[in-house]
Amino acid sequence: MNRRLRTFVWGVLPIAALGTLASLDHVPGTDIDLTVPYAAEGPGPTFNTLDDYEGKPVIDIQGAELDPTSGNLNMTTVAVRTHMSLAQTLYRWVATKDTIVPIEQIFPPGFSEEQVQENNKIAFSTSENAATAAALRYLNRPFDVRVEEILPDSSAKDVLAPGDIIVAVDGRKVADPMTVRTAVRAHAPGEDVSIMVRKDSGEEAVHKLKLGQSKQEAGKAQLGILMSAQSAEGIQVEYNLDDIGGPSAGLIFSLAVVDKLSPGEINGGKFVAGTGTIKEDGTVGPIGGIVHKIQAASDAGAEVFLSPRLNCGEALSRKHDNLTIVAVDSLEDAISQLEAYNRGDKEQLRTCDQAKN
């Protein structure tokens, strides 16, 4: 009996030790890392862009009369879990609907976690600016291109200043931040570009600036400034979601701005959610993690989900019986599709099932 007990104990001990190690993210008392090189992606929180968050409107618009809104226009997110032990990774793979991906998909080689977070912050800020520009353009409201921030290694440092209005690039008037970026990209890194700006005093000045090279796109010229679309009528749009990163909220942000500045309700008072990048001209682009964003919207009670058309194949890879997934290509398209849904026009409504075929 004692021999059997000893055999059992000595057989269980290694298994228990391995199980303990699998549940740890480092060796106790050391700096030895035991985390696995994988991340888990799952449904993240959703935010109603027509509502308040932490006591402030998610989208605060000043300088214009606002039209009443109701219902939901929810932006959706993906929750990403990193620094997981083997046991945590296996649990999320077996017991949840999370997607387990190589850590390189979250933190590309050569980029630290802090650099990725900073890039996501910049992408989110760019998305906000593009959303404002697309909404104002859709509403035929005039706007200016405003300098928001000068990057430390930019030749514009000590020449341009936050608040300057970019009037022209290389002698051509600019219509939006995209126009500025396109003009800059027509040059090679190291070349000079001519920038005309208008100061707060109303004085205009022309500066020649040497272009740097983009850190995101090798060989592409970069001016080294962050820009925003600012209403020429004094309308101010502020977004109050500071802890979110990435560009995928652009479409919903733009819809919410249009909804607040125009008569009627884009969502028909219903619970609408969605995702998609947006450009200043209103073009909607694909995003990552859409199955998790759709799941988050479904869990929150949405009845309609706006998906970039190019994401429709992935969007339909999982079933969501109580959710109508609508395919869109642009801001104008999204608004017309919601109008078709609200009036029950199935012939004009283009769902992802139809867009995929």
Rank of each mutant, 00 (worst) to 15 (best):
157 K>E: 12
259 D>G: 03
54 E>Y: 00
194 S>L: 05
190 G>I: 12
20 T>A: 15
316 L>E: 14
47 F>Q: 06
300 A>Y: 05
285 G>E: 15
48 N>V: 06
149 E>L: 09
163 G>F: 06
296 A>C: 09
3 R>W: 08
339 E>Y: 08
116 V>Y: 08
333 D>K: 14
324 T>D: 13
74 N>W: 13
136 L>I: 11
111 F>D: 12
349 L>G: 13
243 D>M: 04
51 D>E: 13
299 D>E: 13
311 N>D: 12
334 A>C: 09
47 F>T: 01
111 F>S: 15
15 I>E: 04
125 S>E: 12
281 D>H: 10
130 A>W: 00
211 L>Q: 03
258 V>R: 04
85 S>Y: 08
106 I>M: 05
68 P>Q: 12
171 G>L: 07
144 D>W: 09
244 I>K: 02
24 L>Q: 13
346 K>F: 06
183 A>K: 15
285 G>I: 01
9 V>H: 00
87 A>E: 05
295 Q>H: 02
30 T>Q: 08
196 M>T: 15
85 S>E: 11
323 L>M: 15
284 V>N: 03
348 Q>G: 02
134 A>T: 00
327 A>E: 06
301 G>E: 09
268 G>K: 07
355 A>D: 13
340 A>Q: 09
328 V>P: 05
184 V>Y: 04
135 A>I: 07
190 G>Y: 12
307 S>I: 03
261 L>M: 09
267 N>R: 04
153 D>P: 01
352 C>L: 10
252 I>A: 06
18 L>R: 00
218 A>F: 06
132 T>W: 02
261 L>I: 03
75 M>K: 04
256 A>F: 04
146 R>N: 10
200 D>H: 13
64 A>D: 03
154 S>H: 08
23 S>W: 08
120 N>R: 13
87 A>N: 05
45 P>C: 03
165 I>T: 06
107 F>I: 15
58 V>C: 05
224 G>N: 09
56 K>S: 10
145 V>D: 02
263 P>D: 11
63 G>V: 00
134 A>F: 01
247 P>E: 10
350 R>S: 11
142 P>V: 01
103 I>P: 01
238 E>F: 01
186 A>T: 08
128 E>S: 14
137 R>D: 09
334 A>Y: 12
103 I>F: 05
7 T>A: 14
316 L>K: 08
156 A>W: 05
14 P>Q: 12
27 V>Y: 02
43 P>N: 13
307 S>P: 02
325 I>C: 06
311 N>C: 04
